[in-house]
Design a protein around this nucleic acid. Structure first.
Lengths: 139, 139
DNA sequence: CTAACATTGCAATAGCATTGCATCATTATT
DNA sequence: AATAATGATGCAATGCTATTGCAATGTTAG
């Protein structure tokens, strides 16, 4: 188990320290994107800034991506696709549930092609949908 | 001229004070979405908080919408469509230019239909595309 | 004219993101 | 094995944006 996680770090060229193993382990257990605060609370006692930098390192190496879901606090989630530092391929949709306040990645829901006005050159896209998630939705 | 602006406020049920006329006038002169800071600098000397509240009032009444373009600072732009406080119909795409750092509304570029996984109920959508805008794009 | 209400301006605060620096750990070098 | 060099961690401190409380001012209605 631990080996998997360690290997995963190495694959991304990230030095597998104890802290990083713990953080990555914690991240894999989440089914929603989490904030720095969530991470801090879930990993007590740990230094907030170290966690912050750990996430930043992970992001630079293409292991996690951050999500700006419009709530004002940045959320982080593991990349499913093969990303590297230069190119995050997280072109999937993110969903923010206004009921349970959770933010989810919808990795199978891709952003459709969009035809922009002339001479606009897209490089990155970020689509956040707000609404009610499957858990909070009545049958 | 001034009359137009005044009428526009009245149409949205906003008390047309001197400050509000000035702010709306300033907003109509912009071709990009602006931050609170931009507004403050463009309207000196004016109180930042008053401007903040003016924007908030405008938004509640459906005159402007705010854009979270991922830069960390909220931008504001006039609504083109017929919005009211309850329903902002700003389902157009927003474009953030990484070159000139400006954020634009693309009112004619609508967000396409997206099929979500079962039981996810969308209510709002926010699509921000980052890249190079028409002005910064080489011919 | 005065009371009631809306708007404005100042002061203060909260929360998240971020940096500087000192300490500790790990790896490379001789 | 000892030491230098590099990387990781933890603490303190800061910056910036958003936001609220309250007092002062302006505006409207009776």
């Amino acid at each position: 188990m631990k080996k998997d996680i360690e290997q995963r770090l190495k694959n991304k060229n990230i030095n597998p320290t104890a802290m990083r193993l713990l953080v990555l382990d914690f991240l894999t257990q989440q089914n929603a994107a989490i904030s720095l605060n969530d991470l801090e609370k879930g990993m007590e006692p740990s230094d907030r800034i170290t966690l912050y930098r750990t996430l930043k390192t992970f992001e630079e190496k293409g292991l996690v991506h951050h999500i700006d879901d419009g709530t004002g606090t940045t959320k982080y989630a593991l990349c499913l696709e093969e990303c590297d530092g230069d190119h995050h391929h997280d072109l999937h949709v993110h969903f923010y549930c206004t009921s349970c306040k959770e933010t989810f990645c919808l990795p199978n829901t891709k952003i459709p092609e969009i035809s922009l006005p002339k001479k606009f050159r897209p490089e990155e896209m970020n689509l956040v949908i707000k609404g009610i998630c499957d858990h909070c939705s009545p049958d």
